[in-house]
């Protein structure tokens, strides 16, 4: 009766195939296929309204897709929602907080909803509070907590039943910088605990430092997906290297132009009276060091040699450019 996929589920914790969600005339999710490998920290990035929340709500069994299939830890989201619920810890993009509850009661209640026996709950609640550093607020009312603390409490809640996957919708949005960093550190810690983390953000800076994989979504479609490095290579085929020279600019340009992989060598405006050139290069790290070698072997006085690593923000802007107004 219940189908469980054996194919590739060993590798991917979350998988969707041609997922479609239509609200009337609006296509919120359009033929979306995503793969989240086991143990990944997967950043699901896209502008507001791109379909991130809709995708997550399908994966968390809250809404049914119009078409397509989705699997979490090998279980079909539509066929065996209970198994999926057991496997995931979900944090929506809002705080679901009761106003008449103490912090420990909140965790105790959700632990009970996950069918954790009563005698195991006190120790579990204490562990969770310690993990998110809220032990000192144990007996305070939930509504008295700051935004950042509520978010940490929510994160603790998602861990109550020791799920394999965490599905976190905009975990860092609306937080001050300090709380943002705390959440980020917690996510890293949870990744070390062996959780697969699938989280969304519309700010790439939040994602860039901690994620291993990226999926960029735009108007319901997956624009790019893969490891951070794959995406970088996919979206930025050439590396930009800026070289600052004391002298012998033409000689340097000449030498560089003949190296394989160098597409263009251009003059750049002087900086503090120093000559600068920019080299577009498609090659790996060894190739880059070869460029420097070629210059120094000719005795050309190199003052500075920098690769302008396009940050992910640029990658993101490039991936989504023009599509979103």
């Amino acid at each position: 009766m219940i189908e469980s996929r054996n194919m590739s589920s060993e590798e991917y914790v979350i998988e969707t195939f041609g997922l479609v969600k239509r609200y009337g005339k609006v296509l919120a999710v359009d033929d979306l296929s995503l793969q989240v490998p086991r143990g990944a920290v997967y950043g699901f990035v896209g502008p507001n309204g791109a379909g991130k929340t809709t995708t997550m709500r399908i994966l968390t069994t809250l809404i049914s897709p119009t078409a397509g299939e989705s699997y979490v830890t090998g279980y079909s989201v539509t066929e065996s929602p209970r198994e999926v619920r057991r496997a995931i810890g979900y944090m929506p993009d809002f705080f679901g907080v009761y106003d008449d509850m103490k912090v420990w009661e909140y965790l105790d209640f959700f632990a009970a909803c996950y069918e954790i026996p009563e005698r195991e709950r006190p120790a579990l609640v204490d562990d969770l509070l310690a993990l998110v550093d809220l032990t000192h607020r144990r007996d305070d009312m939930v509504e008295k907590l700051s935004r950042g603390m509520k978010q940490r409490l929510s994160l603790a809640r998602t861990l109550a039943h020791d799920p394999k996957v965490l599905i976190l919708d905009e975990p860092a949005s609306g937080l001050d910088p300090r709380a943002r960093i705390e959440i980020r550190e917690l996510l890293v810690e949870m990744a070390h605990m062996g959780k697969t983390i699938f989280f969304s953000s519309h700010i790439l800076a939040d994602v860039a430092e901690i994620c291993t994989h990226l999926g960029i979504i735009e108007t319901g479609k997956m624009v790019a997906q893969g490891t951070v490095e794959e995406i970088r290579r996919q979206l930025i085929p050439t590396r930009e290297i800026t070289i600052t020279l004391l002298d012998r600019v033409d000689e340097a340009k000449e030498a560089l132009a003949h190296i394989e992989g160098v597409t263009t060598v251009e003059n750049m405006p002087d900086e503090h009276g120093r000559k600068r050139i920019q080299v577009s290069f498609s090659g790996d790290d060894e190739g880059v060091s070869g460029l420097l070698q070629a210059l120094s072997s000719r005795g050309i006085p190199v003052v500075n040699f920098t690769e302008e690593t396009d940050d992910l923000e640029t990658v993101f802007m490039r991936a989504t450019k023009g599509i979103v107004s």
Binding site: L62, P92, F95, G96, V97, Y98, Y114
Partner: peptide, 10 residues
């Protein structure tokens, strides 16, 4: 906004 949370539990 706790309804969704409850519905994703068991």
């Amino acid at each position: 906004q706790t309804y969704d949370l409850l519905r994703t539990t068991l």
